[in-house]
Design a binder for these strands. Sequence first.
DNA 1: CACCGTATTTGACCTACATCAATACCTTCA
DNA 2: TGAAGGTATTGATGTAGGTCAAATACGGTG
Lengths: 250, 250
Amino acid sequence: MNTTHAPAPATAAVTDLNQLRVACSSCSLRELCLPAGLDAREMERVDRLVNQRRKLRRGEHLYHAGNPLVALYAVRSGFMKSCVLQEDGREQVAGFHMTGDMLGMDAISSGRHMCDTVALEDSELCEIPYSYLEQLSRELPSLQQQLHRIMSREIVRDYGVMMLLGSMKAEERMAAFLLNLSQRFAARGYSSAEFNLRMTREEIGSYLGLKLETISRVLSRFQQDGWIAVRHKHIRIRKADALHQLLGQR
Amino acid sequence: MNTTHAPAPATAAVTDLNQLRVACSSCSLRELCLPAGLDAREMERVDRLVNQRRKLRRGEHLYHAGNPLVALYAVRSGFMKSCVLQEDGREQVAGFHMTGDMLGMDAISSGRHMCDTVALEDSELCEIPYSYLEQLSRELPSLQQQLHRIMSREIVRDYGVMMLLGSMKAEERMAAFLLNLSQRFAARGYSSAEFNLRMTREEIGSYLGLKLETISRVLSRFQQDGWIAVRHKHIRIRKADALHQLLGQR
DNA sequence: CACCGTATTTGACCTACATCAATACCTTCA
DNA sequence: TGAAGGTATTGATGTAGGTCAAATACGGTG
């Protein structure tokens, strides 16, 4: 990055812009995120809920396992991963998070986070103080509903991962992984056919319960079959059908 | 079972007893279950929330995937399993549930259940109408907190299963499974060292991402090592330390 | 632009678990 | 009480994916 460039043109009105950009009501993600389904009056109150943003550079932690629960977080931009760790040091990626995803719900049960969450690229997060969220969701039924939906969605997602880890073979896991990413990018208005992986082969492997070499081999095989084109972290899906079939069959 | 025995002595006052037994305030599970942390006044209102009990015979479904969300359920007695299924018919056990556990949170996100839940032995469940629960939890902060804690606990539990499926080998999975059961029985006042498995080897295998033969073999090996005594479904843990060590090490 | 550390690919070989198969054992129900 | 069907054990063999190793490619840095 050329540091001699002038700062971004917005500098003159930083405070205002921050104000503006932090508001859920003017956020392009509002239909994906916490305020989904709220009306204008309700949205206004939620705007005040999200009182801060947090910027993370690639590699920085949002929270560590053991940290006390302070807030939940919504990904505004960037890409994150969550890892569970065992006493013996083994670590496993429990999820990848992108724009609009809510983070930190693992901490509600005990008041302490149970996993590490790290930025895989420079990211920005909205910080939602938890006690205030609890309070406001008592006053706004739609917010309460959405919070419950989001937690439940996480439970359902986890069931999917169990299925993947417990009863799929390497190629099926990879197909499921690629299609899931593709579909999530699509839901955010990006191409479903072409995207960049933000994580390493090792991180994919950890998430899928496989070794990095296996990830590499499976990707190569998919490419040879003409189902995808891989170049480093760039993926193009050529035959989504074939990938879907791999899952549906057997 | 000798069917010529007279019915239980309580028959004369069935209605009253049902009333009594359905009340959270007089339920021995209240500290494990939804009303944990409520004071007397709050408990009274929750009593009215749980308006029905449901009895299931072994093998009967509590709900199927696709059923609309009506209520959440608390296990009063018995033993249940939840299974996720794929299009192709493959099914995987996502969890085993015992006394005091809450069920059905998977349905909140979409309004439909995402898994099947089945009784592994004759069981009794408290039915908690969801819309009423939402409403009451807006009025009772402690109830809201407990509901959130329960959902979060489920998320954390799922992380544990991911860890298990994604990065542990057969013996470790089995050790983790046995210790988890043991600890849950202990929390309910039963022996932590001796209990009956309510599920088949195949169901354990499905949960742990292994085949039933592997389950059988690992149990035999543990027995040969003198760590446990197995006879059919009866388990006695002889060296919990050894099992713990198996997990902590590496 | 050259260098270094990290990420990726690919091959050869090995092992943990799956698969297949035979037997034994419970449980249940007539 | 006995027969049938589900459940569990154990052995023999196969294989998907792990492990080890080497070659290559890349991005960041001075």
